[in-house]
Amino acid sequence: MTRPFRRRRNRRACAPLSIYDPIHFGIDENGLPVEVTLMYRNLLDGGEPGSGKSSLLNTIIAHVALCSDARLWLFDGKTVELGLWEDVADVFVGNNIGHALDKLRELQAEMDMRYRQLHAVKRRKIVRADGLDVIVCVIDELAFYSVTIGTKEEQEEFRTLVRDLVARGRAAGIIVIAATQRPSADIIPTSLRDLFGFRVAFRCTTDSSSDIILAVGWAKEGYSARNIRPEDIGVGFILAEGGIPRRFKAAYLTDAQIEAVIATALRMRGIDPAA
């Protein structure tokens, strides 16, 4: 059957990874590796400032940057949290709500176009053999774009677009990774949280904040990120659909290691890192 999908961009054959591969997140309490396959899943990453959210984001972005079949769309309200990755991002949005909305609308249009293509060939989702780039959209941080910057109308449109992408994007090869240091009901309503297949809670100040990320009731069962000690940076709970929270220590990349990954990713794209 002829598939009408656009083929992925030409990248060097040395690309070591695929977005369909598991991503190494860290190790659990027993020293066993924690690996997550994000294809067809979205991820919510929350916790207080300095708790380890950025470490996990860097690990995910590093994997995606080295994939031959994925594109990076980065939204960074501070511009410095994800700024190191700008050279390997296909889209980089800083603290401009207008730019953020333009790019989310563009991503929504891409999603709708892909669903039209799937409908044309009577398929439910894209697969590796289609040769279509998966788009990984990383947003850090949700609260900046949804309650801090812009008008109320712009904030509402941002929330609506993100919710639509999280709800419908997976099968079309659009994955959303959203992070927040303000896990509250106004930032992460239940209707949005429950759409994320993976949820990660790093240290939170209250049981309710932990439950807002993982789901109401887990704190009473003994899975509360409030109980993580402040000095245990990078320790959190990861919850997958249908599972129970698993305590783990997130992998950490130094700036030098990030720069090495970026250099490799640039060479994959035919760009001289020293240029």
Rank of each mutant, 00 (worst) to 15 (best):
D28K: 03
A172H: 02
G197I: 00
L195E: 08
L161E: 04
N10M: 13
L43M: 14
I213Q: 10
G234C: 01
G236I: 03
S208T: 12
T254S: 15
P49L: 03
L82N: 09
S210A: 06
E106P: 01
D272A: 03
K53M: 04
L266D: 02
V91K: 09
P183F: 06
F198W: 10
Q155T: 06
R41Y: 01
R226D: 04
H24M: 15
L118E: 10
L57Y: 05
V235S: 15
R12V: 05
R9M: 06
G242A: 07
E141S: 15
A89C: 08
D194R: 09
E241S: 11
D255H: 15
E157P: 06
G47P: 06
D45C: 15
D130R: 04
A89Q: 03
A179V: 01
L66I: 02
A185N: 10
A250M: 02
W218E: 04
A215Y: 13
D133M: 13
E153T: 11
A274D: 13
H119K: 14
G234F: 06
R159Q: 06
A251L: 14
H24Q: 12
R8Q: 08
G83T: 01
E157A: 06
V93Y: 09
N95Q: 10
N227T: 10
G46V: 02
D164R: 09
A129D: 13
D140Q: 01
D211C: 00
Y223M: 08
G243D: 13
A167T: 12
F198S: 10
P22T: 03
A13K: 11
E81D: 13
G217E: 00
N42S: 10
D207F: 05
A100P: 03
V93R: 05
I126R: 03
G77K: 03
R41G: 01
G217V: 01
E86Y: 07
I174K: 11
A274Y: 14
T148F: 11
L72E: 04
K122R: 14
R124G: 14
L195C: 03
E157Y: 10
T160Q: 15
D130Y: 05
D133R: 05
G50Q: 09
I188S: 11
E110W: 07
D87E: 15
A274F: 12
I213W: 12
P273D: 01
V216W: 14
R116K: 12
I187Q: 11
I262V: 12
A256Y: 14
L72G: 03
G50I: 06
K78N: 12
F198Q: 04
W218K: 00
T205S: 15
S191Q: 08
Q117I: 07
L142P: 00
W73R: 13
D87W: 13
R105I: 12
R123E: 12
P245R: 02
H119S: 15
R41D: 14
S184L: 08
P183K: 10
K152Y: 10
A240F: 02
S18P: 06
